[in-house]
């Protein structure tokens, strides 16, 4: 399982990762559109550098959750968590419901709003490159090694080592270690990064787990409802059959009965 570790204390905000991402994924040049958010991510910009107060630069990209909400939400399974760690997108399966965009706790996936044939767009951890054994373009381009690529376990060790060695430098937490069940993109930082989730703590439970209980109830609800209805129907019709027949029906009702 591969992962990316971003150390915001090393980031100088040069945006070389953004440029590298655009070249590696052959993205079109981008201009601000009505539908874009101000964090810099868009269908043509899969990573961005968000400037925070006091010289803090935070690279924003898909977090590649270990149990991704988008993949669980997609009704056709167009999004998939690979064994390499990347959450990848199969545009040939997608039908454009945008439920993944709604489901993502980090608000990452973007859409080709201006095209008649639109697709969902987001970072895919340079899946083609990591299959070839190369690191993602952004980590390769980083001049200060603020964002590095490697095995998730190794990177976690490295992150904890840095926290341990330099406790004053960092806010004592590895973002993504256990958040929403863990993510493949980890952050260590001197600033609070909850702004990435609109100021909310997401907790350590996986997001798909929230729907799982409701989804598990589905077969039981179906069978239960069908059984209940059949039972009620049987009881009521039997009681009606057993009732002494009283000719109280009006002629209109008889006309109705014709349909039975």
């Amino acid at each position: 399982m591969k992962a990316i570790l971003t150390d915001t204390t090393l980031c100088i905000g040069c945006r070389d990762c953004v440029v590298a991402c655009r070249q590696a994924n052959t993205l079109e040049p981008e201009v601000p559109r009505r539908w874009e958010t101000r964090d810099g991510l868009s269908a043509r910009n899969w990573t961005s550098v968000v400037e925070r107060p006091n010289h803090v630069y935070v690279r924003k990209q898909c977090r590649h959750c270990l149990d991704p909400a988008c993949a669980s939400a997609c009704p056709v399974g167009a999004l998939r968590k690979t064994s390499e760690g990347a959450v990848i997108y199969d545009s040939s399966k997608c039908m454009g419901c945008r439920y993944c965009m709604m489901a993502c706790p980090y608000g990452i996936p973007r859409y080709d709003w201006d095209r008649p044939v639109p697709y969902v767009r987001k970072c895919i951890l340079c899946y083609g490159r990591i299959k070839q054994g190369k690191p993602p373009a952004c980590t390769e381009a980083c001049p200060t090694k603020a964002t590095i690529f490697g095995d998730r376990d190794t990177l976690l060790q490295e992150a904890h080592r840095r926290l341990h060695d330099n406790p004053k430098r960092y806010a004592g937490k590895v973002w993504g270690e256990s958040e929403v069940g863990g993510t493949s993109v980890l952050y260590i930082s001197d600033a609070n990064l909850t702004f990435l989730t609109r100021g909310r703590e997401l907790g350590d439970n996986t997001i798909p787990g929230r729907t799982a209980s409701a989804m598990h109830a589905v077969p039981f609800a179906f069978v239960g409802m069908a059984a209940t209805m059949s039972g009620i129907s049987w009881i009521i019709s039997r009681r009606m059959d057993l009732q002494p027949k009283i000719p109280k029906e009006k002629p209109e009702d008889q006309k109705d009965k014709r349909d039975e």
Partner: peptide
């Protein structure tokens, strides 16, 4: 509303039973 409405039949072929939307569909 679907971005790719001509793919609506994909729900019949590609299954993802974890998705509530799949079940609704």
């Amino acid at each position: 509303d679907l971005g790719l409405p001509w793919n609506i039949w994909h729900m019949i072929v590609f299954w993802n039973p974890h998705s509530p939307l799949f079940e609704v569909g």
